[in-house]
Amino acid sequence: MKVEGIDNGSIENLVLRVKKSDQKAFNILFTELWGPMYSYACSILMNDSLAQDVVQDIWVDFWQRRQDLDVKFLKSYLYKSIRNKCYNHLRNQKFNKIQLEVAHTLSVASDVDQNDDVIELSTRINSVISHLPKRCQVIFRLSRINNIDNKEIAHKLDISQRSVENQISFALRQLRKELAVAKTLFFFL
C-alpha cells in the first residue's frame, strides 16, 4: 500500500492518528518513509544489515513512544534520530578511512532537515514571544522585527529609554532560556 507524494499535511494527520494507536496510519508512514530512511542510514553506515536494524529500531521506538512524543515535523525527527543512532554506533566502532570521510561530509537533504528546522525554530520563537507580557511583546517586536531604535520606541510609547532596554533584555533572556534546547540541537547538526 504505497502512498505516492505524501505531503507534510498528510504526515501531520497520520502522526495524530498514530498517537491514537492507529496501526493503519503507522503502516502508511512506515511504507512511505522506510526506503528513504534506509538509504540514508546505509549512506552513513555502509552496512545494509546494520542500516536495516537502525531504521527498524527508530520505527519501534516511534511506535512505543507515540503517545508521549510531541513531533511537529516527523521526517526531520526521524532523520535526526537515524543520524544520531548511526553516529552513536560509529563512535563505538572502529571504522575505515572511507567511512570517516563520508561521516564528515554527510548532511540531511535540505528539503527535509533545514527547511523543517527553520520552520520549527521560527514557530518556537513566535511562541516564546507570544507568551511574553503584552508591553514586552510590543517593545520587542518594534525593536527586533521593525528595527526601530530604543530612543524612538521610548518616545513612541511615552516611556523611558531604560524601560525599553529592560523589556528587550527580559525578552532576550526568555528567548535564550526557552530556545536553549534548539540551540543545542542546531549546534550538533
Score class of each variant (00 low, 15 high):
residue 144 R to T: 10
residue 90 L to Y: 00
residue 26 F to C: 04
residue 73 F to R: 14
residue 24 K to E: 02
residue 11 I to T: 07
residue 169 S to G: 02
residue 100 L to F: 12
residue 102 V to I: 09
residue 41 A to G: 04
residue 29 L to Q: 01
residue 78 L to K: 13
residue 176 R to D: 13
residue 143 S to R: 15
residue 171 A to N: 06
residue 83 R to Q: 14
residue 51 A to R: 11
residue 20 K to I: 08
residue 32 E to G: 00
residue 91 R to H: 03
residue 88 N to T: 03
residue 129 I to P: 03
residue 115 N to Y: 04
residue 132 L to P: 02
residue 92 N to P: 07
residue 94 K to L: 15
residue 102 V to R: 09
residue 64 Q to R: 11
residue 152 E to R: 00
residue 145 I to P: 04
residue 178 E to G: 02
residue 175 L to K: 01
residue 107 S to R: 12
residue 105 T to K: 15
residue 172 L to M: 11
residue 142 L to A: 11
residue 36 P to C: 06
residue 21 S to A: 09
residue 9 G to S: 14
residue 44 I to F: 11
residue 150 N to M: 03
residue 156 K to S: 01
residue 142 L to V: 08
residue 86 C to Y: 03
residue 140 F to P: 02
residue 96 N to S: 10
residue 116 D to G: 02
residue 97 K to S: 09
residue 150 N to C: 02
residue 16 L to T: 01
residue 166 N to D: 02
residue 71 V to P: 06
residue 79 Y to E: 10
residue 71 V to C: 09
residue 105 T to L: 06
residue 151 K to A: 10
residue 23 Q to S: 14
residue 15 V to P: 01
residue 7 D to F: 02
residue 65 R to D: 15
residue 34 W to A: 09
residue 56 Q to R: 10
residue 23 Q to Y: 14
residue 94 K to N: 15
residue 164 V to R: 02
residue 165 E to G: 09
residue 137 Q to W: 07
residue 92 N to C: 12
residue 61 D to Q: 07
residue 131 H to C: 05
residue 153 I to V: 00
residue 45 L to S: 05
residue 23 Q to K: 15
residue 184 T to V: 14
residue 139 I to T: 12
residue 148 I to C: 03
residue 48 D to T: 08
residue 92 N to K: 15
residue 30 F to Q: 15
residue 84 N to C: 00
residue 158 D to G: 05
residue 74 L to Y: 06
residue 87 Y to F: 14
residue 183 K to L: 05
residue 182 A to F: 06
residue 54 V to T: 10
residue 7 D to Y: 03
residue 78 L to H: 08
residue 88 N to S: 13
residue 118 V to K: 05
residue 168 I to N: 08
residue 27 N to Y: 01
residue 145 I to K: 09
residue 85 K to E: 13
residue 9 G to M: 12
residue 68 D to H: 10
residue 136 C to H: 11
residue 95 F to V: 14
residue 97 K to E: 13
residue 172 L to D: 07
residue 143 S to V: 13
residue 133 P to S: 02
residue 82 I to C: 10
residue 151 K to Y: 03
residue 30 F to C: 08
residue 54 V to R: 08
residue 65 R to S: 15
residue 82 I to Q: 03
residue 29 L to C: 06
residue 182 A to W: 03
residue 83 R to H: 04
residue 8 N to L: 09
residue 78 L to Y: 02
residue 87 Y to D: 13
residue 62 F to P: 03
residue 93 Q to W: 13
residue 105 T to V: 10
residue 51 A to G: 00
residue 151 K to G: 04
residue 53 D to E: 15
residue 22 D to Y: 03
residue 90 L to H: 05
residue 53 D to I: 12
residue 64 Q to D: 15
residue 88 N to I: 00
residue 148 I to W: 07
residue 143 S to K: 13
residue 137 Q to G: 01
residue 51 A to Q: 04
residue 73 F to M: 13
residue 89 H to P: 03
residue 86 C to L: 07
residue 180 A to W: 04
residue 46 M to K: 10
residue 101 E to I: 12
residue 42 C to K: 12
residue 80 K to Q: 14
residue 156 K to D: 08
